[in-house]
């Protein structure tokens, strides 16, 4: 079965591209020969029923699957044409360029300031305290959190509300100035107001970073993304403009899923 790729999508230069990527957990195949290009200009959404492999595929893009001993990846994934699974590539560098935001907000049990400063410090991005202060302020501003926390930067990051924590995690990710940001259901633990704030933030960040977002909410995918990929049983079934996927899906399975017939 080959992925249906809509033919009306403009050719843009791919920031990341995957070719025939399969992922195994032990002997179990969780991702089956997926090929996709991820552009910088747009937000790409991965949708599909639970267990279809969205998170698994997302995690191959910054090699977070390396932390799972049984996981094995086949195929090619490149970032700016460079093979990210090549032994020459340092995974530390890769993850600085491809950041990740998780489903459950996971701020470190440190101060708000130290949460943001963590990445710049380990990557040596700031030369002195002043520069570090600048990065922290800029990242928090970009994440729309600055006004809320500027007077309590020394409070613990875990003392924030769930939505604030998630924006803190986004700020933390952009503090190292990545090129791609991967988000795995970033709003599933949040209420509608916090969700709206994150979606607004994604819209603001798009264009500057390539953003990939996994979501279970059709409305969210429709609101924030310009490209959508539908996954089913480890395969990528259909890929195209978000508007087309939602109004004019070519595949029956895609149609069934977005109209809520299963998943």
């Amino acid at each position: 079965m080959v992925t249906v790729v809509h033919d009306n999508i403009e050719q843009t230069e791919a920031k990341m591209s995957a070719r025939d990527v399969s992922v195994f957990y032990g002997s179990k195949k969780a991702i089956d020969e997926v090929s996709i290009d991820i552009p910088t200009e747009y937000v790409t959404a991965f949708i599909g029923p639970s267990g279809c492999g969205k998170s698994t595929f997302l995690r191959t893009l910054n090699r977070m699957n390396d932390t799972i001993p049984s996981a094995r990846v086949e195929g090619d994934i490149t970032l700016d044409g460079q093979d990210i699974y090549s032994p020459k590539l340092d995974v530390v560098q890769l993850r600085a360029r491809v950041g990740m935001v998780f489903q459950k907000p996971n701020p470190f049990p440190k101060s708000i300031y130290d949460n943001i400063a963590y990445g710049p410090k380990i990557h040596g991005l700031a030369e002195g305290k002043d520069q570090l202060d600048d990065i922290v302020e800029k990242s928090l501003k970009r994440a729309g959190l600055w006004e809320e926390v500027k007077d309590r930067l020394q409070d613990s990051g875990t003392a924030l509300s769930g939505g604030q924590q998630q924006r803190l995690c986004i700020a933390r990710a952009i503090a190292v100035d990545p090129e791609v940001i991967l988000m795995d259901e970033p709003c599933s633990a949040l209420d509608p107001i916090a969700t709206a704030k994150i979606e607004e933030l994604i819209a603001e960040l798009s264009g500057r970073f390539a953003i990939v977002i996994v979501t279970h909410s059709m409305q969210q995918a429709a609101r924030v993304s310009q490209r959508t990929a539908f996954f089913h049983l480890g395969k990528m079934v259909e890929y195209g403009r978000t508007s087309d996927i939602f109004t004019n899906p070519h595949e029956k399975r895609t149609q069934d899923y977005i109209t809520g017939r299963y998943g």
Partner: peptide, 11 residues
């Protein structure tokens, strides 16, 4: 999640 968060930052 704490560990993953740190590793995902490139630590």
């Amino acid at each position: 999640a704490m560990r993953d968060g740190s590793l995902a930052m490139g630590a």
